[in-house]
Amino acid sequence: MPENKKHIALFIPCYVDQFYPKVAIATLELLEKLGCQVTYPMGQTCCGQPMANAGYERDTVATTKHFIRIFKDFDYVVAPSGSCVLHVKEHAPAIAGMEKEQSELHDKIFELTEFLTDVLKIENIKGSFPHRVGYHASCHGQRGLRLSASSELNQTPFNKAKQLMVNLEGLEWVELKRKDECCGFGGTFAVSEEALSIQMGKDRLADHQAQQVEILTGGDMSCIMHLQGIAKRNGNPIQFKHIAEILNEAIS
């Protein structure tokens, strides 16, 4: 069976569901355009990441159990978020009695861009997106899921998001001065270390602005929500889109 004929579950992070339904819609439509059979399991809830990163992993056992039950029967689980996927794979507490299901889940859950490049084996997407685009490499996708080469490591350069976007007609890919520096979102860090979080966000925005970025994109709406919140408050005209939105628009 070709990979795209398998049954794919869409996992939509809670804040995307609530604040950015357009990103979820774009993800769904994009996968459908690529010939995938996608279902959104209605019973899904938050994956538990914000609690776990705040130091309450032990309180996410029920959430994790529920998550496994909801998604265990699908061939793949795909989410427009590196951060939530990393949490499910690495930090969700081990559930006694569900070892097999949990371990299988870790192997079949993918962040959107890695699903496209690694499972669907898409070399590049044909379409048009005539804009100057800056890419924010969210840390959990970057250094957790290894969605692109880390500037810290001595390794052959690669970037899964760039691979998907760079050949779109008219798209100008921007190289940043600090290509994978954290934006300062960091989950509850955003409020527990508010001053630093804001400064880091401002510094990231300044890098994109210095390169005349028109649209800032990335694979995690949490980082983008933070950057966009700072940009809006300061009257910064830069636009924000999730990579799913760009790819979905480009091929329509």
Partner: peptide, 8 residues
Amino acid sequence: FASTLCGS
């Protein structure tokens, strides 16, 4: 908690 867990 003085970290975003960015992993750098």
